[in-house]
C-alpha cells in the first residue's frame, strides 16, 4: 500500500510531487519548530473557568479554575487555548474566558475572538472561490494587501476546466471597498491580466492561446464571524485576442476569505 509504483514514466511526476512536499516542509519547518519560549502567565479574575479535555465545546469539563489562580497559556487551536495550572494539570479553556483575566504583572489580555472591527483593520486577505467563467466551472485563489482603508492590491489565479478547453487565468489589480465597516459591504474591481487557453486533446486542431485582458468587477463581502467573510463577485473580462476585435466574457464566483 505504501510502495510507490516502479514505472519510470511516473518518476518525473513523483519527483515533482516530492519536490513540492520538500519545498512546503522547508517553508513551514521553521514555523513548526520555533516554539515561543516565553511563559504566558495569567490570573483568573472571573468567578471560575471551565477546563475541557479537548479543543471543542463538547469535550468534557474535567477541572474548574478558581478565581485568583495563576495559569500558564501554552498554545491555541481555533477558539481554544491549552493552559497549565500551577500543579501541572493541562486542559483547554475557551478564548472568551480570557476576557476576564489579567497578566501576572497586570498586563491586559487581548486574546479574544476577532470581530467585525478587526475586519476593517485587516492588512492581508486570502481566499478561495468557485464559480463559472464563460459558463464553465472554475476554481480560484486570491491574495490581497490593503494599501489604504478602502483600497487593496489583489492577485488572483483561477482555472476553468470545460469540455472543450482549459483556461488558466492570472490577474492583478485594485479592489475598492467604500464601506469596509459594514457587515455586508460592496466592492469594485479594476484589474488586468493574462489568460492561457489550451484545448482538450480530442480537439487537436485548435492551438494554445495566450490573451491579455482587463476586467471590471463588482461584488459583496458578507462578514461571517471570527476572521471570515463570504465573498460573492461578478467580473466582466474584455480580452484582446487581436488588434481589431475584442471579446467579452462573464465570470461569477462565490468564495470564502480570511483576513490576517
Amino acid at each position: 500500500m505504501f510502495a510507490f509504483p516502479t514505472y519510470t514514466r511516473m518518476d518525473s511526476l513523483y519527483r515533482r510531487f516530492f519536490t513540492i512536499a520538500l519545498f512546503i516542509s522547508l517553508l513551514f519547518s521553521p514555523l513548526a519548530f520555533a516554539k515561543k519560549k516565553q511563559e504566558l502567565q495569567v490570573v483568573v479574575t472571573d468567578t471560575y473557568i471551565s477546563m475541557h479535555t479537548g479543543p471543542g465545546r463538547g469535550y468534557p469539563i474535567f477541572h474548574v479554575l478558581e478565581k485568583g489562580e495563576v495559569i500558564t497559556l501554552l498554545y491555541s487551536k481555533t477558539d481554544w487555548i491549552k493552559a497549565e495550572t500551577s500543579k501541572g494539570l493541562k486542559g483547554w479553556v475557551h478564548r472568551r474566558s480570557m476576557d476576564d483575566t489579567v497578566g501576572v504583572n497586570g498586563e491586559s489580555v487581548e486574546l479574544g475572538i476577532p470581530q467585525l472591527g478587526d475586519f476593517s483593520n485587516r492588512s492581508w486577505e486570502v481566499g478561495v472561490s468557485a464559480g463559472e467563467f464563460d459558463k464553465v466551472e472554475s476554481l480560484g485563489v486570491h491574495a490581497a494587501y490593503r494599501l489604504t482603508k478602502n483600497i487593496s492590491a489583489e492577485l488572483r489565479y483561477s482555472q476553468a476546466t470545460g469540455r472543450f478547453s482549459n483556461s488558466k487565468i492570472v490577474s492583478w489589480g485594485l479592489v475598492h471597498q467604500p464601506f469596509p465597516e459594514w457587515k455586508i459591504s460592496p466592492f469594485f474591481t479594476l484589474a488586468n491580466g493574462q489568460i492561457d487557453i489550451s484545448p482538450n486533446n480530442n480537439l487537436s486542431q485548435t492551438q494554445d492561446q495566450d490573451d491579455n485582458f482587463y476586467l471590471i468587477g463588482t461584488g459583496l463581502y458578507y462578514y461571517l464571524s471570527h476572521r471570515f467573510m463570504v465573498r460573492f463577485e461578478y467580473n466582466n473580462y474584455t480580452t484582446l485576442p487581436d488588434r481589431n476585435n475584442n471579446e467579452n466574457v462573464d465570470e461569477w464566483k462565490l468564495g470564502i476569505s480570511a483576513f490576517f
Binding site: 500500500m1 513551514f28 495569567v42 498586563e107 486574546l111
Partner: peptide, 23 residues
Amino acid sequence: ERRSITEDQLDNEDWEIGVYSGV
C-alpha cells in the same frame, strides 16, 4: 512598561500539513 498579552505571543496550531497513501 504597560504591556499587554496579545495573539503574537501565543503559538497557534491551526495549520495542518500531512501526507497520505492508499487505494
